[in-house]
Amino acid sequence: MDNSVYPQNSLVSVRNLTFSRGDKKIFDDISLDFERGKITAIMGPSGTGKTTLLKLIGGQLFPEQGAITVDGENVHQLPRSQLYNLRKRIGMLFQSGALLTDMSVYDNVAFPLREHTHLSESMIHTLVLMRLQSVGLRGARHLMPSQLSGGMARRVALARAIVLDPMMILYDEPFTGQDPISMGVLVHLIKALNNTLKLTSIIVSHDVHETSAIADYIYVISDGKVVGQGSPKEIQNSASPWIQQFMTGAADGPVHFHYPAKAYIDDLLPSGKRY
């Protein structure tokens, strides 16, 4: 399988990455590329370490083997200050939103500006309102995070992630646990922001339908290996029965409904007492 599909135009490239937690290999020598200006999705069943991959890209975790380069820089060999400079150009949307609970919506969005810039309060005011406007929550700026619904919290977090004009946004399970309306809003926002702000987006998700709707390229990961890659259409028409099962959500297939066990009849009847 050719792993370097976009070698010259990739913003993030993962090369021969191996990472394990305890005895379990989460990633086993995988290579991925994320093209500039595109939305690339990583899909796979729960527990395949999709969030771990984002943390590896952000430099919060270190790989055992292999390298990850972001915009030409090897993330895990950067000194701390340069890593922090790189992170300023990466926005990350956490599954829970990760808003700071002791600050209002406004202060949360203003947080990166106040930490990293010396802008005047009036400039910050303008920038924050612009970002909140783009996620449709300008009116909610005085609310505290505890007063927001899950979908609203994610939109605020999205406004915060784009406030420093990043080159790339990492989305960790953006659609999980959302009602159909906020799901639709988020799908629309991710697509719109990617196009208007000229971002590169990496989405980690197991929501097949929504992700296929906006992704330009999809990697399917299972058991630490890339089991399929291509455009959403190619993935949907994949010949692999495993990918077919994953995309359609069939209850039985290559991934069995039953956890491995000895034969049903042996379990029910004590051995040696078969009549």
Binding site: K55, G58, Q60, Y84, N85, R87, K88, I90, M92, F94, Q95, S96, A98, L99, L100, T101, F111, P112, E115, H116, A157, R160
Partner: peptide, 18 residues
């Protein structure tokens, strides 16, 4: 502990703040 459990600490770190 709650800031850690709700990914706030990770979030701060990803915003390039120690």
């Amino acid at each position: 502990g709650l800031m850690k459990a709700t990914e706030q600490l990770s979030g701060i770190e990803m915003m390039a703040v120690d």
